[in-house]
Simulated assay, not measured.
Amino acid sequence: MFKALKALFEATEVQPTPTSNDVESATAALMIMLAIADSHFDDRERATVVRLVKERSGLNDAELDTLISEAEQAAKSATSIYEFSQQLNKALRYEDRVNVVRGMWEVAYADGVIDKYEEHLIRRVCDLMYISHQDFIQTRNLVRDQ
């Protein structure tokens, strides 16, 4: 029994390197979670998510539709934002993570109203992805002032 426990603790698990498609899926899922945070997934929010994912990924329309559908299902069935934010944290440099947050602000502002739940979700994502409060504020102001 102790040998089995020892083997369990000594086993090293190799974590697969996230692919660009995984990164785009996680990004889209976070953006969709943000869009539904206020209990209303507006067409303007959806269009913003699609535009941002398309700009970042370069996927064709069929691939993009599939990715968005899968991300929407993942967002609705997720129990927390941790799995998506940690995936991005491992795969992206700091500047790229800040760009994800900027995209989240664009989604939040798409319907013209920043709900308290949307701002709270972006703040939590920033905390989990180790984005400074200064960059949180700067990205918000940049998007707001556009």
Results as ranks from 00 to 15, higher is better:
residue 76 K to A: 03
residue 39 S to F: 15
residue 70 E to M: 06
residue 44 R to H: 09
residue 82 Y to H: 07
residue 103 G to A: 14
residue 89 N to Y: 03
residue 96 D to V: 00
residue 92 L to H: 03
residue 86 Q to Y: 10
residue 53 V to H: 01
residue 105 W to Y: 15
residue 89 N to G: 02
residue 80 S to M: 05
residue 53 V to N: 00
residue 92 L to N: 06
residue 48 T to V: 03
residue 98 V to C: 05
residue 53 V to K: 04
residue 85 S to C: 02
residue 69 S to A: 15
residue 91 A to Y: 04
residue 88 L to A: 11
residue 89 N to H: 02
residue 102 R to S: 14
residue 36 I to L: 11
residue 39 S to R: 15
residue 93 R to D: 06
residue 90 K to A: 08
residue 90 K to M: 07
residue 87 Q to E: 11
residue 42 D to I: 02
residue 100 V to N: 11
residue 99 N to F: 06
residue 36 I to D: 12
residue 54 K to R: 12
residue 56 R to W: 05
residue 45 E to A: 07
residue 87 Q to N: 10
residue 72 E to M: 10
residue 67 L to E: 04
residue 102 R to F: 13
residue 84 F to P: 00
residue 46 R to I: 06
residue 47 A to P: 01
residue 43 D to Y: 12
residue 36 I to R: 15
residue 98 V to A: 10
residue 44 R to K: 14
residue 74 A to D: 09
residue 39 S to K: 15
residue 109 Y to E: 01
residue 90 K to L: 11
residue 47 A to N: 07
residue 74 A to G: 05
residue 53 V to W: 02
residue 55 E to A: 13
residue 90 K to V: 09
residue 84 F to I: 02
residue 43 D to G: 10
residue 65 D to K: 15
residue 47 A to E: 08
residue 92 L to M: 09
residue 101 V to S: 09
residue 74 A to W: 02
residue 49 V to C: 01
residue 103 G to P: 06
residue 66 T to K: 15
residue 101 V to P: 10
residue 81 I to Y: 08
residue 68 I to F: 12
residue 65 D to G: 08
residue 45 E to F: 04
residue 40 H to L: 15
residue 104 M to T: 12
residue 106 E to F: 12
residue 48 T to Q: 06
residue 98 V to R: 08
residue 100 V to Q: 11
residue 101 V to W: 09
residue 77 S to N: 07
residue 108 A to M: 09
residue 39 S to C: 11
residue 79 T to Q: 07
residue 70 E to I: 09
residue 52 L to F: 03
residue 77 S to I: 03
residue 100 V to W: 13
residue 70 E to K: 08
residue 102 R to W: 13
residue 77 S to W: 00
residue 109 Y to V: 00
residue 90 K to Y: 07
residue 36 I to Q: 15
residue 72 E to P: 02
residue 82 Y to P: 01
residue 89 N to V: 00
residue 59 L to F: 11
residue 54 K to I: 03
residue 75 A to F: 00
residue 44 R to T: 08
residue 99 N to C: 02
residue 55 E to N: 13
residue 43 D to W: 07
residue 68 I to T: 05
residue 101 V to I: 15
residue 68 I to G: 06
residue 73 Q to T: 11
residue 63 E to R: 13
residue 64 L to C: 14
residue 104 M to A: 12
residue 100 V to S: 10
residue 108 A to I: 07
residue 58 G to Q: 06
residue 69 S to M: 10
residue 92 L to S: 03
residue 47 A to W: 02
residue 36 I to S: 11
residue 104 M to N: 11
residue 41 F to D: 13
residue 74 A to F: 04
residue 67 L to N: 02
residue 36 I to K: 14
residue 55 E to R: 13
residue 99 N to D: 12
residue 108 A to S: 10
residue 95 E to V: 05
residue 84 F to H: 01
residue 81 I to E: 09
residue 93 R to L: 05
residue 73 Q to G: 06
residue 93 R to A: 08
residue 89 N to W: 01
residue 37 A to E: 12
residue 81 I to V: 12
residue 99 N to R: 12
residue 57 S to M: 10
residue 107 V to E: 04
